[in-house]
Every structure is written in structure tokens, then in C-alpha cells.
């Protein structure tokens, strides 16, 4: 009962902005913005979407964002899960020290690392390519994700790992064949979070990408945000297009978790 009311409260908070976003994107561009929310535009038009694609180069930017996510998200999840599994197999004291270091790394502001990262990628000749956007996947995108996996793998009964050792399973096979299937909901959650972080990454593309053809969706959307007030449907149309994939990933991850719980 309480869960249901909780869900209603969450929907009540998050649904109205989404409804206004979609409704606003269907207004005709070029008209003064309404002074009060106007849920049913008259006339309903997709002109904002056409202009968003044309002015913001959203088609190309969406493809770039999808390409980055297609490489970065699976790589990041694999690295995070392997690191978390390794931590879970370490003695408690060592694992605790690694977790503490991860927490320290979490506290470093991204902006503080901007110039060193730029200098590093410049030396490697990788500025103005998509490589700097994919590279964080090699360290699991955020120190938080290996920690989440560490907690998940630590919750697996120790006897199971000992049984795997007795069966002569290598640590790699134990991780893949035994550990990963047991923490599938965590994989769905970490995957969804990594997707959202990578999909909405604005700072790295801003600094590393010069060529408009390489722009990702957040950069393209930023340029639409500077349009005149009368063109607000164009920006909102771009925002709908940028939000939709994140919603799809969330729904898929949610369904995955529910199915897994059903199987159990």
C-alpha cells in the first residue's frame, strides 16, 4: 500500500515536467511563448522537431551519442564488474582501503581534471575525436560503479566461491559463469546509470570536440538552448529527442530486473 502511494508521489513529481516538455515541443515555433502552461497546443505541429534536426544537427549528434554509448556502456560495465569482483576476493582490510580510495576519487571535482585530461589527450593526438568520450569506460566511468559491484559480489555466499575453486574454475570463469548471473539486477542498474552519465556528458565533448560533425547530443542541444524565446518549441523538441533514449533504457533495465526477480 505504502509502496503504491510512494509510486504515485514520485509520478506526481516527475510526470508534469515531462508532459509540459512534450506539449511544449508540439507548439508552432516563431510565436511568443504562452504566459501560462498551454497543454493542448493549437495547432499541434511537429515543426519544432524538423527545425531542431535542421538547426541543431541533431541527427548526426544522435548517431555520435549512440556510437559513444554503444562502446562505452558495455565496456564500462565489464570493467566495473571485474574490478568489483576482484575487490570482493581481496582480504577485507585491503578491500576496505581500496573502497576508501575510491571514495576519495569520487570527491574530486570533474572540472579539476579537465586541463590535465586535455593535455594528456592532446599528447596522444586524440583531441577532436570521440576517443576521450569513450576513454572513461576503461576506468568504469565512475569509482562508484566498482563499489556497487563490490558490495553485490560480497553478498554472494563465500561457500559458492570456494565450491568454484574446488571445481578448478579460474577467477575469470567464476566471475563470468557464477558471479555475473547472480548480480544481474546490479548489472541492469549500473548499465542504466552508466548510459545516463555517458549520454548526458556535456563537459568532455565541450572541451575535446571541435568539429561540428563529431558533436554529441548534449552539445547540439546546448546550441538550441540559445535560440530566441519565440523558438522555445525547437529547444523542447530537441530535449524530447535527448530524453527519450534515456527513458527507453530505464524501462528496459526495469523490465530486466522484474523478470529476474520473477524467475527467482
Amino acid at each position: 500500500m505504502w509502496r503504491r502511494w510512494g509510486a504515485v508521489a514520485v509520478v506526481a513529481v516527475f510526470l508534469p515536467p515531462l508532459v509540459l516538455l512534450v506539449s511544449g515541443s508540439l507548439h508552432r515555433p516563431g510565436l511568443p511563448p504562452p504566459t501560462t502552461p498551454d497543454l493542448l497546443p493549437d495547432p499541434v505541429t511537429a515543426e519544432g522537431y524538423r527545425l531542431a534536426a535542421e538547426l541543431g544537427g541533431l541527427t548526426r549528434a544522435t548517431l555520435n551519442s549512440l556510437l559513444v554509448c554503444a562502446i562505452a556502456v558495455p565496456s564500462s560495465v565489464l570493467v566495473a564488474s571485474m574490478a568489483g569482483f576482484a575487490m570482493a576476493r581481496l582480504p577485507r582490510r585491503v578491500a576496505g582501503a581500496v573502497a576508501a580510495l575510491s571514495m576519495v576519487a569520487l570527491m574530486v571535482p570533474a572540472v579539476a581534471l579537465l586541463v590535465p585530461k586535455f593535455a594528456m589527450f592532446r599528447l596522444m593526438g586524440l583531441t577532436d575525436t570521440l576517443a576521450p568520450l569513450v576513454a572513461p569506460a576503461l576506468i568504469a566511468t565512475s569509482p562508484l560503479f566498482p563499489l556497487v559491484y563490490y558490495l553485490a559480489f560480497r553478498a554472494v555466499p563465500r561457500e559458492l566461491y570456494e565450491a568454484c575453486a574446488m571445481e578448478d574454475l579460474t577467477p575469470l570463469r567464476t566471475w563470468w559463469r557464477v558471479g555475473m548471473p547472480l548480480v544481474r539486477p546490479v548489472t541492469a542498474g549500473v548499465g542504466a546509470l552508466t548510459f545516463v552519465l555517458t549520454w548526458s556528458n556535456f563537459l568532455d565533448p565541450l572541451v575535446f570536440l571541435y568539429d561540428r560533425e563529431l558533436f554529441t547530443l548534449p552539445l547540439a542541444l546546448r546550441s538550441l538552448a540559445t535560440l530566441d524565446a519565440a523558438d522555445f518549441p525547437v529547444f523542447l523538441a530537441g530535449a524530447v529527442l535527448a530524453t527519450a533514449p534515456a527513458l527507453v533504457v530505464f524501462v528496459v533495465a526495469h523490465r530486466d530486473v522484474r523478470q529476474w526477480r520473477g524467475v527467482r
Binding site: V115, F118, A119, R122, L203, L206, V207, R222, A225, T226
Partner: peptide, 17 residues
């Protein structure tokens, strides 16, 4: 997109060489 973005891009690229 805007002036702040331009200053971020410029500062980082100058500092990064």
C-alpha cells in the same frame, strides 16, 4: 553555445597547450 562555454573551451585549450 554561449559565452561561458566559449570561455571554458578557450581556457582549457590554452592551458592544455
Amino acid at each position: 553555445g554561449d559565452r561561458k562555454d566559449l570561455i571554458t573551451r578557450l581556457s582549457t585549450s590554452i592551458a592544455g597547450g
